[in-house]
Simulated assay, not measured.
Amino acid sequence: MSAARARGLKGGRPKKMNDEKRKLAVRLYKEKQHSVDTICQMMNITKPTLYSYVKSESQY
């Protein structure tokens, strides 16, 4: 791992969505205009993923 980090590589699975799309999903959730199922279908994510985005957004 240290050799990979030295080359500028990181381990782990790549993120599904960029920060802009994450913020959009959280905003849609907080506006309460759409159901959780609808938001998940629009963003192509699962409910636990959406809830983790909401939780991480509220910590900041």
Rank of each mutant, 00 (worst) to 15 (best):
G11C: 00
M17F: 09
A6N: 09
R7N: 08
L9T: 00
Y60A: 13
R13I: 11
I45G: 03
K15D: 07
K47Q: 11
G12T: 02
V54N: 00
Y53R: 03
R5C: 14
Q41E: 13
V26C: 09
R7F: 06
T49S: 12
K32N: 10
G11D: 03
A4Q: 03
E20V: 12
D19Q: 11
G12K: 06
C40L: 04
Q41N: 12
P14D: 07
A25P: 01
L24K: 12
Q33V: 06
A6K: 11
Q33E: 14
K23T: 07
Y29E: 03
K16A: 12
M1N: 14
S52V: 04
V36T: 11
I39Y: 02
S56W: 05
A25E: 02
A4R: 01
R7P: 00
A25N: 02
T38I: 11
R5M: 13
P48S: 06
S58Q: 06
V36L: 11
Y29Q: 01
R13A: 11
A6L: 10
K16Q: 12
E31S: 11
R27W: 08
L9F: 14
G12F: 08
K30I: 15
N44H: 05
M42I: 08
L50G: 10
N18A: 03
T49D: 03
S2K: 15
H34T: 01
L50K: 05
M1I: 08
N18T: 00
I45W: 03
L24T: 09
G12N: 04
T49L: 11
G8T: 05
Q33K: 14
G11I: 00
D19K: 10
R27Y: 06
A25K: 01
G12M: 08
T46R: 09
M43V: 07
R22P: 02
K30A: 14
D19G: 07
D37I: 04
S58R: 07
N18Q: 01
T38N: 11
K16M: 06
